[in-house]
Nucleic acid binder design. Sequence first.
DNA 1: CTTTCAAACAGAATTAAATTCTTTAAAGTG
DNA 2: CACTTTAAAGAATTTAATTCTGTTTGAAAG
Lengths: 165, 165
Amino acid sequence: MTTTTLDQTDLQLLRLIQKDASLTNKQLGLKLHKAGNTIFNRVERLKEIGYIIGTLTIINREKLGEMLTSFTSIQLKDHSTQSLKNFEQEVVKFTEVMECYHMTGDFDFILKIVVSNMQAYKEFVVNRLANLPDVGTVRSQFVINEAKRELAYTLEMPPFHANGQ
Amino acid sequence: MTTTTLDQTDLQLLRLIQKDASLTNKQLGLKLHKAGNTIFNRVERLKEIGYIIGTLTIINREKLGEMLTSFTSIQLKDHSTQSLKNFEQEVVKFTEVMECYHMTGDFDFILKIVVSNMQAYKEFVVNRLANLPDVGTVRSQFVINEAKRELAYTLEMPPFHANGQ
DNA sequence: CTTTCAAACAGAATTAAATTCTTTAAAGTG
DNA sequence: CACTTTAAAGAATTTAATTCTGTTTGAAAG
C-alpha cells in the first residue's frame, strides 16, 4: 500500500520533529512547503513503517536534587555467551542503570549509572552490581561535567533507500 | 505567584510524560484523578519553572542505514583549565559527537561518537578529532550491542523540596 | 499518443484537544 | 470570623488533529 522508502521531505520532517515534537502540522507544513494535512499523513506513515518510535518529554533532572553520573565498565570473569547474556539480562533490570552497552575492548560492558550521590553509588555497586554472577573487574569513572548530550541524529539520505528492514 | 515546589501529582505527571509525550491532558487526568484542565495548568507551570525542557520524537536510527557507535576516551597532553575548556568548546561542534563528558580518572573526556561505519570513524578520528589542540591519547571502544538506553529518570521526591535552583 | 491507475496533495468538513475564563471550595492568615 | 490565596472543575472558546473528497501528476499499459 504505502512505500517504505523516504524522500527528502520525510527526512526533513524527521530532522525537525526529532528536535521538537511540539510543532504543529501546520507549522511543519509551512517549513516544508506542504499542507498541514500532508504532514499529518506523512507522520502517520512514518509511524506505521517504524521510523518513528515515540515521543517524550525532556525533564530537567538537575532541578530534582543531587545527581551523580558514572560510566562504569565491567569485565566479566567468564566470557562465555551464557555469562554475557546472563549478566546483560540482569543488569538492565536496575533502574540506576540508564544505559548498558556490550563493548569491544578490555571491558565487556559500559554502564551509565545515575544515582543521587556517592553514598548511593557505593551501596549500588557493592551490594547489587558486584553481586551479579561472573562480575570481575569494575571500573568507575564519574561525570564531572556534561558538555554535550544530543539525542537527535544527523539524518543523511542513505545511498540505497529501498530497505524496509 | 506560583510555587516552585512539586507535589506528588507533579512527580507522577513528570514520570508519565517523560515516557510518552503524546498522552492528552484528558488521558493524564484520568490516571491522576484530575481534570484535563488541571493537568494543562500543571504542565504549563512545570514549563515555566524549568522542570520541563522540551519534547521530542524518538527516531529509529537503525532503519536509516549503517551505524557504528563508539565510546571514545580522550586524554589531553596538558591539563590546564584553558586546555580543557578549549578542547571541550571545539569537540562539541562535531555532529558526530553526540555526547561529551568531562570525567574523573585517567582520561579527561568520554565522547559518544556515532558514524556510519569504520571507514568514517577512522576518517573522523584521524583527520578531525586528533587535530584538536592538546589531544594526547585516544582510546576507542565500540558498541557491539545496545542492551539498554533509558531516557526517563527515576524521579523520587527529593527530601527537601523548596529549591528553585 | 491516449488511457488507466496509484500516489501525493490541498481544501473543506468534522472531531477532538488545547486553552481560556469563571466559579467554587478548601486552606492559610491576621 | 473576615480576607486572601490556591487548586481545581466545568463551561465556553479557540486551535489543532483527523477524516473525507476532489484534483493533479506521473508512471505503466495498451
